[in-house]
Design a protein around this nucleic acid. Structure first.
Length: 672
RNA sequence: GCCGGCUUGGCGCAAUUGGUAGCGCACCGCUCUUGUAAAGCGGUGGUUGCGGGUUCGAGUCCCGCAGCCGGCUCCA
């Protein structure tokens, strides 16, 4: 929301240039709508300034920069056809249909041309046109012509249906073209179909922008359409802000889990195994085990039952669940087993199709169904770390966050109608509590509702379920963001989004209602009045997949895990070989009490050992030499280089154990 | 799956216009080791992702494949 800096009393017709002399004002809101400063207003209008550093102002800056990019592209290559060029988070893009894709050299040339256009100070002039005029002027721009056609269908005051940025070009109501006018000659040097608003002139773009990368993108976001070449850029009010943004990107790159995974020897993706299939090395394996152990403890202490199921199954199970109908292309192909063929090639015994499981829920349904169930057992909470396999498209695979083999911490909770709401509330609380234990504590919620093109069940079921989720979400006190059409086909879901240490958000836990599977599996329980009733099923994944959660924690902590998660928690560094036995005894005591402690027995000198321990992000270095041995003490050195000397051995061990138990971050003196 | 880029010893990088594949770290060996981020010397290791082709000669050029990266589409 833009807070009015000043609301002018107007006596007559004027415009934004006259109203706002502050140069940081780049546009204005007239009666709530964004307009160019050149728009004329009267005394009955409510006018608010839009500064360049406000969210609206940044969007305008970025959109105007996108126009300059498009102009530069057509200056370099007049054959390029224009797609769309909206602002996006931190920047903008513009799509082009060109004969040959852009190269890095092309970007350099475009960068130069853009600088020239910015310096020229071309004015953005808005001009209302009729559909026919627009068609005539843009006859050489087939994609723009398509957008003009779409405009007719646009809802009142809203965006183009299925909007993927097109609304930047054509809004509802009148159609407008922006002319780029050279201030010296008064000539129109370029023009583009655009809803606006824009900066008053290109000079205001300044030098806080950069072209980032090229990529292909389907026209209007559909695989069925041709691919256009997309250029991404970023734009900021000042060069300093651009540099700060670039610095943020570098910082994020430093904590990339793929990089840290190799550096810290946590996991790898051997080509020999196949794309999207990871192996965890010893150091990654122990972190993973700690992640799971903590969650398992939480499950047991919160009334879950631990179950287990196999990795493959006959296809009929996934026919019952519906997965083979809905997601077959995302499953590994069937293994056709047990077929027998005689000498003539005739099938003498019918075979069976087995599939790697892409989901755990059907198995849990079978466990529910394994015997008669009483209402007294509900809510029944079945949980499993279930490894599933999904045939993700090759281009979508990415590190540990998008893989083909993953372990879900998957729980299915069977409840009566009356229990749904309380159970959902309980689930959310459980999720928050558990995530905090991992060191994540900044959350918001997202409510994913029905995709009108892909759902089963009655509208009423969906409405009731969605409303219940909404109420529970609202009662949590967290922000609840709508995600229309984001639900799976079988029911709405509420998901917990967590912000990490550098402000990025990740979708973590999901709590999803399902009224489809209980029906398909004919699940039932005996109610208190002796009648058979169908339970409602809640899918609850807390971490999502262990692999992805591992990646998120690794990036959140930039590899510097809290003590309980660190692969090596304590390393003993003797000042000289002579003190190795003394330290070794202490390390042995630590190991005996369950601490992952080692002694550095290499023939490196002490300083090198300290360096090695520090670069591998071990939280606690235990150092001992003559002084410590004589006093029966040890010295702590922490990740940041701070130290605490002469700590009595028994106290040191106890302090380490306590910090592990408390899931404490130990990074500096005073943390332990 | 689609578009583009990339691929040199475990890791990070070098190799003038095609002309005998190098460096640092890691690893191994020897000598050294006394208080908080790199001791010294020596050594092993690559048919330059794989398969074809052009050439007297290919890490350098061309084609195909694989893997990875950035996007798009998808994500139960």
């Amino acid at each position: 929301m833009v807070v009015p800096m000043e609301t002018e009393e107007m006596e007559q017709v004027t415009d934004g240039f006259a109203l706002f002399t502050d140069r940081s004002v780049v546009a204005m809101r007239v009666n709530g709508e964004l307009k160019d400063l050149a728009t004329t207003v009267t005394e009955t209008d409510t006018v608010e300034p839009v500064t360049i550093d406000s969210p609206d102002g940044l969007n305008i800056l970025r959109h105007s920069t996108a126009h300059v990019l498009a102009q530069a592209v057509q200056a370099v290559n007049p054959e390029a056809k224009l797609g769309i060029g909206p602002p996006v988070t931190d920047g903008f893009y513009y799509d082009f249909d060109v004969e040959t894709p852009f190269t890095p050299e092309d970007l350099k040339a475009l960068d130069k041309e853009m600088s020239r256009i910015v310096r020229a100070g071309q004015r953005f002039i808005r001009r209302v046109v009729t559909d026919d005029e627009a068609r005539a002027e843009l006859a050489a721009e087939p994609y723009k012509l398509e957008l003009i056609g779409l405009k007719g269908g646009a809802a009142e005051g809203g965006a183009v249906p299925g909007d993927a940025g097109e609304s930047v070009e054509v809004g509802a109501g009148e159609l407008t073209i922006y002319d780029n006018v050279d201030p010296k000659s008064g000539e129109t040097v370029w023009k583009d179909l655009c809803r606006g608003p824009h900066l008053p002139n290109t000079r205001m773009i300044g030098n806080g922008w950069a072209l980032m990368r090229v990529a292909a993108a389907y026209w209007r976001g559909s695989e069925k359409n041709p691919q256009l070449q997309r250029i991404y850029g970023t734009a900021w009010p000042t060069k300093d802000e651009l540099r700060a943004y670039q610095h943020r990107l570098e910082e994020a790159a430093k904590r990339d889990h793929r990089k840290l995974g190799a550096e810290l020897d946590l996991f790898s993706f051997p080509d020999e195994i196949g794309s999207g299939l990871a192996v965890f090395h010893p150091k990654g394996g122990i972190v993973r085990a700690e992640i799971e152990n903590y969650l398992r403890d939480q499950l047991v202490s919160h009334d879950y039952e631990l179950v287990n199921s196999p990795h493959i199954t006959k296809g009929s199970l996934f026919e019952t669940s519906g997965h083979l109908q809905w997601y077959k292309e995302g499953m590994f192909p069937a293994m056709h087993l047990d077929e027998e063929i005689d000498g003539e090639g005739n099938v003498t015994k019918q075979g069976q199709d087995y599939y790697l499981k892409p989901m755990n829920c059907p198995f849990h349904n079978l466990i529910f169904r394994a015997r008669g169930r009483s209402y007294r057992e509900l809510p029944l909470r079945l949980a499993e770390f279930g490894t599933v396999y999904r045939y993700e498209k090759s281009g979508t695979l990415s590190g540990l966050t998008r893989v083909r083999g993953l372990t879900q911490d998957d729980a299915h909770i069977y409840v009566t109608d009356e229990q749904v709401k309380d159970e959902l509330k309980r689930q959310l609380e459980f999720v928050f509590e558990t995530l905090r234990g991992y060191g994540l504590d900044d959350f918001y919620l997202e409510l994913s509702t029905k995709d009108p093109d892909k759902y089963v069940g009655s509208d009423e079921q969906w409405e009731v379920a969605t409303e219940t989720l909404r109420e529970v979400g609202m009662e949590s006190g967290l922000d609840l963001v709508p995600d229309p059409g984001g639900a799976a086909f079988y029911g709405p879901k509420i998901s917990v989004q967590a912000r990490d240490a550098i402000g990025r958000t990740w979708q973590l836990s999901t709590v999803q209602l399902d009224f489809n599977q209980p029906e398909r599996f004919e699940l039932e329980y005996t109610a208190s009045d002796g009648t058979k009733k169908q339970p409602i099923m809640i899918h609850r994944a807390l971490l999502g997949s262990i692999e992805r959660f591992f990646a998120i924690l690794l990036e959140h902590y930039a590899g510097a895990f809290p003590l309980w998660l660190a692969p090596v928690q304590v390393i003993g560094i003797p000042v000289a070989d002579e003190y190795a036995p003394y330290l070794g005894a202490i390390v042995a005591q630590l190991k005996g009490s369950g601490v992952r402690a080692q002694i550095d027995g290499s023939d490196d000198r002490m300083q090198k050992k300290i360096r090695n321990a520090t670069t591998s992000k071990i939280p606690v270095q235990l150092i001992a030499g003559e002084t410590d041995r004589a006093a029966e003490t040890v010295s702590f050195r922490f990740r940041d280089g701070t130290q605490e000397n002469g700590v009595p051995v028994a106290e040191a061990i106890e302090r380490i154990r306590a910090a592990i138990a408390d899931h404490r971050m130990v990074a500096t003196q005073g943390d332990l």
